[in-house]
Design a protein around this nucleic acid. Structure first.
Lengths: 98, 98
DNA sequence: TGGTTGCTCAACCAGATGGTTGAACACATG
DNA sequence: CATGTGTTCAACCATCTGGTTGAGCAACCA
């Protein structure tokens, strides 16, 4: 995949599992195990997904004993929004991109 | 890649070349050759990129003699915007997603 | 100390992606 | 009809992706 920030964010959200995780994290921080629970994949696979989100700057990790809670960092979404606003058909307000 | 519409749109825009093409098409329709001109790849490669954009519903093709002009269909971007708005840190207005 | 829990790293695999070249199709024009 | 232009299709290739299993590390607990 291309290495630029915008590409990483779009790429990260191109996977429904990852979008789902973002939705889950919007409710509150969660551990890898908690995030893996709804899905029919191994914890390792979920850990990989998180790595993608982390490299896109969308989540951060802390340490809490042996747990590594995941925290949503939604600021990067604004990067995408700024790009998209330029090409939307239905401008949310006049005057170009916010 | 996952087959759902939202994933296809995110995926399509995860490539800087394709984003660039969208930017070019926002100015006006263009043929495959015109679109390929700025890039250091074959016309076939550009044709493949267009196929991705088309399958994401972001462009349509007509026929004009032997040319097949490409037209931007920006409506699908709203799909993405709706998703994103839910998780942005800086809500453009109160009251949840538009 | 030794075991258990939470997580990551490494190696591997099947399938997708983005590029190539070469051939073919569609249409206009000599 | 033959040739040139614009585009796509097919086959191939290297690399990436999303999954697996197995091993290992870090921190708590008995």
């Amino acid at each position: 995949m291309a290495a630029d920030a915008l590409s990483r964010v779009f790429e990260a959200l191109a996977d429904p599992t990852r979008r789902d995780m973002v939705a889950r994290l919007a409710v509150g921080d969660a551990t890898v195990n908690e995030l893996a629970q709804p899905y029919d994949v191994t914890v390792q696979a979920v850990s990989k997904h998180l790595k993608v989100l982390q490299e896109a700057g969308m989540v951060s990790r802390t340490r809490q004993a042996q747990r590594r809670p995941v925290h949503l960092e939604a600021e990067v979404l604004d990067l995408m929004t700024k790009w998209i606003e330029r090409y939307r058909t239905a401008p949310p307000e006049q005057g170009g991109p916010r």
